[in-house]
């Protein structure tokens, strides 16, 4: 598996952050981030809370604005140009910690809304695609329910399907399992593993180290707004180089 992943990962860079800086007021949240993701790569980003990991991936689809440095996604540089922002958002799917499904729309409407209005796909085709992805996340029977009627795990799988319906080239996951009850974490992770096996380019902020070991091409450790260490999973876990990485790993693995 890792051989095919490596082959896929040898593609052109999909995301490139160069000397990226961001401040919240006086607080320097991202410090000179240099980071590159190639096509088909699966990156797991971890780090203590407040380390800037969520902020970094939220910069990639402009939910947060960076103030210095350059950010290129799929050959398009992110600037204040609304056209570029919208073009990038069409190609980048995002899954949130709190699902953020639209509660006033049915599951099916949640899935077809963006394809119909952003991609201009005909309604029938959008519904067909939606049902295809609902089957892939194994909840086609929930299509006509409202999000509030589903369990957390089901909602998160709907959220993943909603992003996939836009046929994105890149998927961003912002702590997708942190808000779930323990017994629901697995069903969401299984869906993500499946997605990774199909060659999707993924950046995943998570503390699920089992997931990182199973699918990640690289694990990135962030602390205090910097990328401290970045390595292939077995080297990252078995032989961490930096003291801060060692401390962090000892805290999350030994309990």
């Amino acid at each position: 598996m890792s051989a095919t992943a490596a082959a896929q990962a040898s593609g052109e860079p999909m995301i490139k952050l160069t000397k990226l800086n961001k401040w919240y007021g006086d607080f320097h949240v991202l410090k000179n981030i240099d980071f590159e993701v190639r096509k088909g790569e699966k990156i797991v980003v971890c780090g203590p809370s407040g380390s800037g990991k969520s902020t970094m991936i939220r910069c990639i689809n402009r939910l947060e604005e960076h103030q210095q440095g350059t950010l290129v996604v799929d050959g398009i540089e992110l600037t204040n140009d609304l056209k570029n922002i919208e073009a990038i958002r069409r190609e980048v799917g995002m899954v949130f910690q709190h699902f953020n499904l639209f509660p006033h729309l049915t599951v099916l409407e949640n899935l077809t809304l963006a394809p119909i209005w952003v991609r201009k796909v005909p309604k029938a085709e959008a519904e067909e695609t939606a049902m295809f992805y609902l089957k892939r996340v194994r909840i086609p029977e929930q299509a006509h329910k409202y999000p509030g009627q589903l369990s957390g795990g089901q909602q998160q799988r709907v959220a993943i399907a909603r992003s996939l319906c836009m046929k994105p080239k890149i998927m961003l996951f912002d702590e997708p399992t942190s808000a779930l009850d323990p017994e629901m974490v697995k069903e969401v992770l299984d869906t993500m593993v499946e997605l990774a096996r199909e060659g999707m380019t993924m950046i995943c902020v998570t503390h699920e180290m089992g997931f990182a070991k199973a699918v990640a091409d690289r694990v990135v450790f962030m602390d205090k707004g910097e990328i401290v260490e970045s390595n292939v999973p077995h080297a990252f876990f078995d032989n961490p180089q930096n003291e801060r990485t060692k401390l962090f790993l000892s805290q999350i693995l030994n309990h």
């Binding site: 939910l63 919208e86 958002r89 709190h98 953020n100 639209f102 952003v118 992003s163």
Partner: peptide, 14 residues
């Protein structure tokens, strides 16, 4: 909730 605005943005809605 702010997440609703963000989800709409992330999906590329104008």
């Amino acid at each position: 909730p702010k997440g609703q605005y963000e989800a709409a943005d992330a999906l590329g809605l104008s």
